[in-house]
């Protein structure tokens, strides 16, 4: 019960301080879940994001559900998801009217301009932290570069990029790496 409460509070904090959508949440999650609480290893965060990206729905909810499940099963998943949703829910209910009135006042715009600059840094930091566990050889580097160009220049949708990446991964793995893997096992 104590663990569930801790999970709930941690994700409540994450939900309360994430501006600019799911991606800005990743570094905060890494900090809380990997560095402080040591619930999940840094390199496992990548797989959390793989699942969060490949499944429909908000990235924040997907990754919270997955991390919660990893820590404490279905109950953990429920505690984490509820925690990450609740701040947004409460804030919107209590502030919706005020925000519609003052959301575009000068001081609010300035404050959010500052926050948005940090959001850029937070997202770039997430890339830095995960680079080593994603880009392990020339094959993965190639997939990363090609997928970025396809996404950026040809506006490929994330799902299509993930499917193509998965297929490319299967082929490269099967052709070049599988034999090495089994040799290593023997």
């Amino acid at each position: 019960m104590k663990l569930l409460w801790e999970i709930f509070i941690t994700f409540f904090k994450i939900g309360a301080f994430t501006f600019g959508g799911g991606y800005a949440m990743i570094p905060l999650m890494q900090h809380e879940v990997c560095t402080l609480k040591k619930w999940v290893r840094e390199e496992d965060m990548v797989d959390v994001l793989v699942v969060a990206q490949s499944t429909p729905g908000a990235i924040a909810i997907n990754s919270s559900t997955f991390i919660g499940y990893k820590i404490a099963g279905i109950k953990g998943a429920f505690a984490a998801t509820l925690g990450v949703i609740l701040p947004a829910f409460l804030i919107i209910l209590s502030l919706a009217g005020l925000l519609m009135k003052y959301g575009d006042s000068a001081i609010m715009l300035k404050v959010f301009y500052g926050i948005r600059a940090v959001v850029v840094a937070l997202i770039v930091a997430a890339v830095f932290k995960m680079f080593k566990s994603c880009i392990t050889d020339y094959g993965t580097l190639l997939i990363a570069v090609i997928s970025f160009f396809l996404l950026f220049y040809f506006r490929l949708t994330p799902v299509v990029a993930i499917i193509i990446g998965g297929i490319a991964g299967l082929i490269i793995y099967k052709v070049f790496l599988f034999s090495q893997d089994t040799k290593g096992d023997n």
């Binding site: 991606y23 797989d47 990206q53 993965t140 997928s147 996404l151 990029a161 990446g165 299967l170 490269i172």
Partner: peptide, 13 residues
């Protein structure tokens, strides 16, 4: 996973 991980990096970038 070998193929999807680098795509995730691209998406975040």
């Amino acid at each position: 996973l070998y193929g999807i991980r680098p795509v995730v990096i691209s998406l975040i970038l």
